[in-house]
Every structure is written in structure tokens, then in C-alpha cells.
Design a protein around this nucleic acid. Structure first.
Lengths: 210, 210
DNA sequence: GGTCGGATAGCAAATTTTTGCTATGCTTTT
DNA sequence: AAAAGCATAGCAAAAATTTGCTATCCGACC
């Protein structure tokens, strides 16, 4: 049922070990008859350029060495209008996933997904439907509901704290009274109910506030 | 020459897709006859516990979901004294690689390495020699002068601080005197010459120490 | 057999952060 | 116009962190 005729999968991931290994996985389970993997953007694009118009399924890593897979989308579309693009990412940030989603690729999969999710994704994409990893769906939902809102000014100060600036240093840089900086800290710490600046910074990082 | 009899490879990587795929790679090229992959620490440890004393080659991801592969080393050693441990990491930070090296695992490989490097690594490890990816060797050479070193214990404490634990909390969790925790903080802060814990944490994050 | 570094622990003092409470302008929303 | 929320600022006390200095134990290395 999954053994569609002459479908080609192409993988681009700068972690060569993953690219090579993943191509074996796609072959082994009969998900594709032909699989080609690349760990360099240039080779990948060259191959794509020579691929003509045949139907191609592209597995694209989000984090490439110097850029993100997103930046390749226009080029991919130019080279092969019918290509299906599925993003693979190890990211855990709702903000990043939302960004990815906004680009509307054919699929978005977590690198932590299991074989069944991979198969579901392929089944959907083969029916011209879009697929997003249930794990990421959940991530997005949770983000909406648990969102603690920091004001723009608070986030600005928070960035200083996260860079290691003390109260005094932050006040100096932003031309504020140290009392004001303390007040901002206090307010943010109250919002997430914590007792120290490191906890606040950790929270902010985990929730991609900064 | 590579087809040693009844050698077992075990993979632990929280990116299930990689773990599964990589196991296929190890099998396909005859690098191992038996390969088992896990994406959860618990399952991995349970398997290891039941493995008896046979020779095992462990491929360990550096970044696990809540901790680093490093923290599993004692447990691995306890469960199987003869296990060979090879780290796989996508990290690019000299400091992190140095840290990894200090633990003296049997092998350290970049996830961006090619098949030949993987084979060289295995050849070395099978001769009871230690192997480090040439790419990482170069990375370390280039940064020898500016390298700041944290000890394993320091990094352990650092992770607590980064999670927001105070001195008292950290001491409590690790069954230490708060004086000891202070001493560790002090030492690390002296190493990077900073005056507050947030600066230390920021440094550690930027240099991928934690 | 001695030196060195790492992990442990302590005291006292200086400094910074955190907390409890208050207050004044300034927008935005109702 | 009142209310609500944001940015600003202050004082004082409590708590935590940082610093200067010392010291023991242990294992590794020469």
C-alpha cells in the first residue's frame, strides 16, 4: 500500500550520519524505492536541478550549518514545482514551530517521532494533505494556554539580565534608577512566581520569551 | 575484517528517528551483527542491566532530553564494566568537546562525520584505543589558548544553577554543604572572571558547556 | 615520596538581591 | 471620566550572593 511506483525521496541534513542512516530507514520499510541523501546544500541543489519534473519527496533539516532549511524553499520551488517538502527538526520551541508552520510546508516532523508518525505523515502528504507532528500540535496548544505575558519593556530588561547584567549595570545602560530595574524584576518574578533572577531567566529561555 | 563475531551495538539517542536509522547503518555495512536502538534512557538502562557481561559497544548521544549522555557514564560502568562507549554529538563548541574528552570515553564522533570516520573509530576502539573525530581534534587545536575548563563536578553544579536552583537548594539536592557549593561557584566564576551567577550561566550556555 | 589539582568545608565581611509597601505620571480601554 | 495597566521611583529590612582567606582529604602524576 505504501509502495508507490518510482517515488523518489531526497534527504538534506548537514549531519551526514543522520542523512545516510535515514535514507536506509526510508528504503528498508518500503517507504520509497529510491532514496538519495546529501549533507551539503550545494550537492543537494545540483541534484534537484537535474531531477527534471518527476515527483520528489524532500526531507529537509531545519537547522543547516549556516542557515535554516526555510531559506531553501524558494529555490526548491523554482527547481521542481511538484516536489513535496517535509521538514525534520529537533526543535522544541513553540515559537519556532509556529514560524515553520507559517511557511506551510507539506509536512513537519520531529526528529524524536516514531515510525508510525513518519508513516502517517507520508500517507497524508501522498494524498496532498499537510501533516504536522502531533507532538508539535500539542506544543502549540500548550503554548497558547500557558502563555505568561511580559510587556515589551520587561522583555527588554530581561534580555539584559539574561546577558548577565546586574541590576546596577542594567540601570546604568538603560538610564534608569536601580529602583525601577528592581521593580521590573519584581513584577516579572511575581508573574511566574519565582524567587531568583536565574529562575526567571531559565523560564524566559524555555518559553522562548527571549 | 570488520565482521567480529557476536558483537553487539547499542544506541541511545532521544531522536528516535536517528536512533532507528543509525542502527540500520551499523547493520548494513557489517559493522555489527546485532544492533539495538533506544530513544529513552530508562529502556536503554534496563536493556543494559540485562545484557550480562558480553562485550557491548554503546553509541551515546550527548544531548539527551533532560540531561547529557555524560551523566549516564557511571551507571553504564556499573552495569557493564566492559562496555565501550562512543559519544555522538552535533555540538561545535571546543569547550564542550574538551569537557567530553575529559571524561575519556572510548570514542567521540561528530554527527556530521562520514562513513570512513565512523569505521576508523570502530577500528580503533576495537583495539582498545581511544578515538576522537579529526574534526574535533582540529577544533580543539584552534582553541587551545582560550580554552576554559570546567571539571565534571563543576558542570554538574552549573546545570543546577542554570535550572534556577539557589546555593541552598543545590546543596540540599546534592547533599553538600552550602560552603562547598559556594566554593564551586567561586572557582568557576574565577575561571571566566565574572561577578555573578547569571554571567556564569550565560557563558556556559553560549559555550555549550551545559 | 612529593607535588598538584579537584572536591570538600569553614568563617567573616562586603555587596547584591529580594521583599513588603507606597506613590506618581501616562496611556489605553471601558 | 473612571479604571486598569504600564513605566517610573523610593525606603528599609531580610535574605542571598560574593569575596578574601584557610584547610583537609584523596587520587593522579612525576
Amino acid at each position: 500500500m505504501l509502495t508507490n511506483d518510482s517515488q523518489l525521496a531526497v534527504i538534506l541534513d548537514d549531519h551526514g550520519l543522520f542523512a545516510t542512516s535515514f535514507s536506509l530507514l526510508l528504503e528498508k520499510y518500503g517507504l520509497f524505492h529510491f532514496v538519495k541523501s546529501f549533507d551539503r546544500k550545494d550537492d543537494f541543489l545540483r541534484f534537484l536541478a537535474s531531477s527534471g519534473t518527476q515527483k520528489i519527496y524532500i526531507f529537509l533539516d531545519y537547522y543547516l550549518s549556516e542557515e535554516t532549511g526555510l531559506s531553501l524553499l524558494p529555490e526548491i520551488d523554482r527547481l521542481n514545482k511538484d516536489a513535496k517538502t517535509i521538514f525534520l527538526t529537533s526543535a522544541l520551541s513553540p515559537l519556532l514551530i509556529q514560524t515553520l508552520k507559517n511557511y506551510n510546508p507539506d509536512g513537519i516532523l520531529s526528529k524524536s517521532c516514531n515510525l508510525d508518525t513518519l508513516k502517517s505523515c507520508l500517507a497524508s502528504v501522498r494524498l496532498d494533505q499537510h501533516f504536522i507532528d502531533p507532538f508539535f500540535e500539542k506544543l502549540l496548544e500548550n503554548h497558547q494556554s500557558t502563555a505568561v505575558r511580559f510587556t515589551p519593556r520587561e522583555i527588554e530588561l530581561l534580555k539584559h539580565f539574561a546577558r548577565g547584567d546586574t541590576i546596577a549595570k542594567t540601570a546604568e545602560k538603560l538610564f534608569l534608577s536601580s529602583h525601577t530595574v528592581v521593580a521590573h524584576r519584581r513584577k516579572m518574578m511575581a508573574k511566574i512566581n519565582c524567587q531568583s533572577i536565574t529562575q526567571l531567566i531559565t523560564f524566559a529561555r524555555e518559553h522562548e520569551v527571549i
